[in-house]
Design a protein around this nucleic acid. Structure first.
Lengths: 108, 108
DNA sequence: CAGATGTATCGATGGATGTCAATATGTAGA
DNA sequence: TCTACATATTGACATCCATCGATACATCTG
């Protein structure tokens, strides 16, 4: 520590960093990003697992696994109606989600 | 595909999703988030590896490894001045970086 | 109740990733 | 040139993660 940059020892609480990282980890997968794009761009703003396997080229268990990760991160919320489980972007989704969806839509 | 959600087959290009995911992967590590917080909150807006190993409790090679990932993702840029390599948040850092830094600072 | 259909879970597997010790590279000063 | 110090790279290792097939669970319809 010889450099005089003035870096503080506790700029960010480790637990807090862990929490934010957990959200970002849930977003940091190309197929999960495509899932979010498909869900948010669908007419109803919702989609079921069986709607996603085709466009994504993934198996049903894999898509279900991704939905679980997104749900546990608070990024999507689900709602069972009959045989189908409808997923949509969560109302109280973390702040970064909006920024990521925008960038996905814009195509930058 | 029995559900009538109206999900389109090509909501987001796979290559584009891959690209955005790469940025998010670089951000999705608690120690890299702490690095960004330390760098951006330092007096000069810069920090060297040797400034970070102490606060993070990580070895010098590990911190150097993280800086490489952040640099290759375009999140930080580096500048060698004498023995030290100074890192700072890149001027043209991806859009999500700002949102993440804000959330880190706010402590939400 | 029995069959069909949508979803979730389990177990296995190949690949990616974070970490460190050892070592190499680069730079300043004696 | 030799030494000290900051950083980068390499190799090894343990762990996590995305994926799939098989299977269990849930719901609707005959």
């Amino acid at each position: 520590m010889q450099c005089d940059c003035g870096a503080s020892v506790e700029a960010v609480d480790a637990a807090h960093a862990e929490h934010v990282a957990k959200t970002l980890k849930a977003l940091a997968d190309p197929n999960r990003l495509r899932i979010l794009a498909l869900v948010s761009s669908s007419e109803s703003g919702e989609a079921c697992v069986c709607d996603l396997t085709g466009p994504l080229g993934l198996s049903q268990p894999t898509v279900s696994h991704h939905m679980r990760i997104l749900r546990e991160a608070g990024i999507v919320e689900s709602d069972r109606r009959g045989k189908w489980v409808h997923f949509r972007i969560a109302a109280e989704a973390p702040a970064e989600v909006g920024a990521v969806l925008d960038r996905l839509a814009v195509g930058v």
